[in-house]
């Protein structure tokens, strides 16, 4: 269980202190898929860094399985909007670096990588270099790298933000399939309402700066959620409800 306890974050910039997060309280169950949905600049990304101990909050604390996080949490995998692949390594080596840096046997690391590449349908591309791949492929490999060590926590910061609409839909379905085979807890940062609903067990709405939890909506849509789900009445009612929240926040207006 991941618990955020009154987490707050204030930066000191040249023009004075900036309060990015205030009194964030969240409880996330093991294996849960949770989206953090909010407008740009509301501190969603900062929250991911705080959760993994890469950034120390100025108020409150985080616990994972009752252990307070005080240093970088190693059972985590990160995926960002940019793939952050190493351009001097081929696909297989890029996925395997996760195991290599963790002291895993090279052969074992490669076998695990091949297994993951097979799951995303890219095993034939194992000898290619990142620059030879499309954006969607690069991001798939980035996800494979993040899952290589079966992390307890998978943290995704707008991972599909730079992809075209078709690739995005496909990636969403693929991600759900990958996640279903493992038992990682996922924290998924996005500002796309549909994406949040379609992927999550729970959507957490974060307010404008200073970011705090405004609303939490449990999403009760059956899994796996294929493309037709986005036409169902339940989906639309969730979407309606969240759109209303954002209109009240003043992020959307007519």
């Amino acid at each position: 269980m991941l618990i955020l306890n009154n987490v707050g974050m204030t930066y000191h910039s040249g023009s004075g202190p900036v309060e990015a997060l205030r009194d964030v309280n969240l409880e996330i169950n093991d294996g849960e898929f949770v989206s953090l949905l909010g407008p740009s600049g509301c501190g969603k990304s900062t929250l991911l860094f705080i959760v993994t101990g890469l950034t120390v909050p100025t108020a409150g604390y985080v616990t994972i399985d009752d252990k307070k996080i005080t240093e970088p949490f190693h059972e985590a995998g990160f995926v960002f909007q940019d793939h952050l692949l190493l351009e001097w390594r081929n696909v297989l080596q890029n996925v395997s670096i996760q195991g290599e840096l963790r002291g895993m046997d090279k052969q074992v690391a490669h076998e695990r990588s091949m297994e993951l590449l097979h799951m995303v349908g890219l095993e034939d591309f194992k000898d290619k270099y990142p620059h030879e791949l499309s954006g969607g492929m690069q991001q798939r490999i980035s996800i494979c790298r993040a899952l290589h060590h079966d992390p307890k926590l998978l943290l995704m910061d707008e991972p599909f933000g730079a992809l075209d609409a078709f690739t995005r839909d496909q990636m969403r379905v693929d991600l759900e399939r990958l996640w279903a085979k493992r038992n990682s807890t996922v924290l998924f940062v996005t500002h796309d309402i549909s994406e949040a609903i379609l992927l999550s067990d729970r959507v957490v709405v974060i307010s404008r700066r200073p970011g705090t939890v405004l609303e939490q909506i449990k999403i009760d849509l059956p899994r796996p959620r294929n493309f037709s789900v986005s036409e169902s009445a339940e989906f639309l009612s969730y979407k309606h409800r969240l759109t209303k929240t954002f209109m009240e926040m003043g992020v959307l207006y007519e």
Binding site: T52, L54, P72, F73, H74, F78, F80, L84, I97
Partner: peptide
């Protein structure tokens, strides 16, 4: 961000 990723590894 790559530094962050590496730090978790």
């Amino acid at each position: 961000r790559l530094v962050f990723v590496a730090k978790t590894m």
